[in-house]
């Protein structure tokens, strides 16, 4: 069974490697820069930026649901799932924010704007920083409960943040993401490849991280039994 799970990891690793490499080729060599975009070459960030956000969203959704299940059932594996997804989600949110900032400068001519999506992401990022700090600073008996509670509060809060910022910002003119409407077929294809690559990468990272954490806990338990 163990061997089987390793070979799955190998398959996943190979698949996400080739898909990511393919996506890189498509993005930089193959797909034409969108003719309608004002930001020029920077438009290609879109192929990484959006999949990054998709994975971040997916990861935080996993954290939220696992946290709920953890509080209901208290399985250490649910906590493992929640925390691993939170870590990966936060890495992707950070990358999403960075790619967003790089894109925003040529597109909106500012690095940062208090757009609802950006601001919500930033607030959520801060909440998850708190999530990790609490896990580190809380006594072991309580850390998991605390983390689950913060994830639940944070997820609910992000909806209210989004609503509040939207109302706040609609009172001022603000730049709008201009990628709406139809995508050219090449663009759509490139986007889909990239999306698949990042999603596979997420699944792979989740598997590796949860296995690692489970092993860590086993080691701690064994070391304690040794004593």
């Amino acid at each position: 069974m163990k061997r089987n799970s390793y070979s799955w990891d190998a398959v996943l690793m190979a698949a996400s490697f080739f898909l990511l490499a393919g996506a890189l080729y498509l993005v930089f060599m193959w797909v034409p820069t969108s003719a309608t975009s004002l930001e020029g070459i920077a438009q290609r960030i879109f192929y990484f930026h959006v999949p990054l956000w998709w994975v971040a969203f997916l990861a935080y959704a996993v954290t939220f649901i696992s946290s709920l299940v953890y509080l209901a059932r208290r399985g250490a594996s649910w906590d493992n799932l929640a925390c691993s997804a939170a870590e990966i989600g936060t890495v992707f949110v950070t990358l999403g924010l960075i790619t967003g900032i790089i894109w925003a400068k040529p597109a909106w001519s500012v690095w940062w704007t208090w757009d609802p999506r950006l601001t919500t992401a930033l607030v959520l990022w801060f909440i998850y920083i708190g999530y990790f700090l609490v896990r580190a600073y809380a006594p072991a008996a309580q850390a998991r409960n605390f983390a689950a509670v913060i994830s639940i509060i944070g997820t609910v809060d992000s909806f209210i943040v989004f609503m509040a910022i939207r109302w706040w910002r609609t009172q001022h003119p603000s730049p709008v993401v201009g990628t709406g409407g139809g995508l050219a077929p090449e663009m759509l294809f490139t986007f889909m490849v990239s999306l698949a690559a990042f999603t596979l990468l997420f699944v792979l990272l989740m598997r590796l991280r949860t296995t690692l954490r489970a092993t860590q806990e086993q080691v701690t338990a064994l070391r304690q039994a040794e004593e």
Partner: peptide
């Protein structure tokens, strides 16, 4: 039983 995190 009581576990504090992974510690029993």
């Amino acid at each position: 039983t009581k576990a504090f995190g992974p510690r029993l």
